[in-house]
Amino acid sequence: MDFELRATEQSDYDTIATWIEDAVSCSRWAGPRVPFPFSARELPELLSVKGGSSYSLSDSDNSCIGFGQFWVVRQGTVHLGRIIISPEARGVGAGRLLCKKLLAKAMQETGAAMVTLRVYRDNMPALSLYSSLGFSVVESESTGDLLLMSTSNAE
């Protein structure tokens, strides 16, 4: 099966909206500034990040199975965020594929040498994935609930 990382379309936001079932999952995915419930039509604006780019992972039918964003946090460093995979596509490598493609795109578009992301300490599948992709915990920049992970310990 072929998978493509492409610019997010409104139909993708319509699909993504069905993956978020409650306020807790909304906050954990999108952050506290995105209210729940929300309209799929509002998602492009609600998820907008200054200088950010949004991408969807689509399957061979062009159906959205994943979403992620990146934005430059400072010169040389790009941050990945709001990574989500369709519930039906979890546990079969779609998250790994999305992250690899998103990492490559972020580094290509920004020229960044370092990539960061945040992950909840209790999200063991994501923690394991990010660690296997070369991310390390930066404890000094982490909180009780959230870990900052980086592709370099230079922070």
Rank of each mutant, 00 (worst) to 15 (best):
P44V: 01
P44N: 05
P44E: 01
L47D: 00
L47I: 04
V49Q: 05
G51I: 02
G51Y: 06
G51C: 05
G51S: 08
G52S: 10
S53H: 15
S54H: 14
S54V: 12
Y55D: 00
Y55L: 01
Y55G: 01
S56M: 00
L57E: 01
L57M: 06
L57I: 06
S58Y: 06
S58A: 15
D59S: 06
D61H: 13
C64G: 04
I65Y: 02
I65M: 15
G66S: 08
G68H: 02
G68F: 00
G68L: 02
Q69T: 03
Q69L: 03
Q69F: 07
V72G: 07
V73R: 13
V73L: 11
R74H: 11
R74W: 07
R74S: 13
R74V: 13
R74E: 12
Q75S: 14
G76F: 02
G76A: 07
T77E: 13
V78F: 00
R82G: 08
R82I: 09
R82M: 13
I83E: 08
I84V: 14
I84Q: 06
I84H: 02
I85K: 03
I85L: 13
E88R: 14
G91F: 09
G91T: 09
V92H: 10
V92L: 11
A94G: 01
A94N: 02
G95D: 04
G95M: 10
G95Y: 06
R96Q: 12
R96K: 13
L97C: 12
L97D: 02
L98M: 11
L98S: 03
C99A: 13
K100D: 12
L103C: 05
A104R: 08
A104F: 01
K105D: 07
K105G: 08
A106G: 12
A106Y: 00
A106S: 11
M107F: 00
Q108C: 09
Q108V: 10
E109S: 13
E109M: 11
E109L: 12
T110P: 00
A112P: 01
A112F: 01
A112Y: 00
M114P: 03
V115F: 03
T116K: 07
T116H: 03
V119A: 09
V119C: 12
V119G: 07
V119N: 03
Y120I: 14
Y120N: 11
R121W: 11
D122Q: 14
N123F: 03
N123W: 01
M124T: 15
M124W: 13
M124Q: 15
P125K: 09
A126L: 07
A126R: 10
L127M: 12
L127K: 10
L127F: 07
S128E: 14
S128D: 13
S128P: 10
L129Q: 14
L129M: 13
Y130Q: 04
Y130E: 02
S131R: 15
S131M: 05
L133Y: 08
G134Q: 10
F135H: 05
V137W: 01
V137N: 05
E139Q: 10
E141W: 03
S142E: 02
S142M: 05
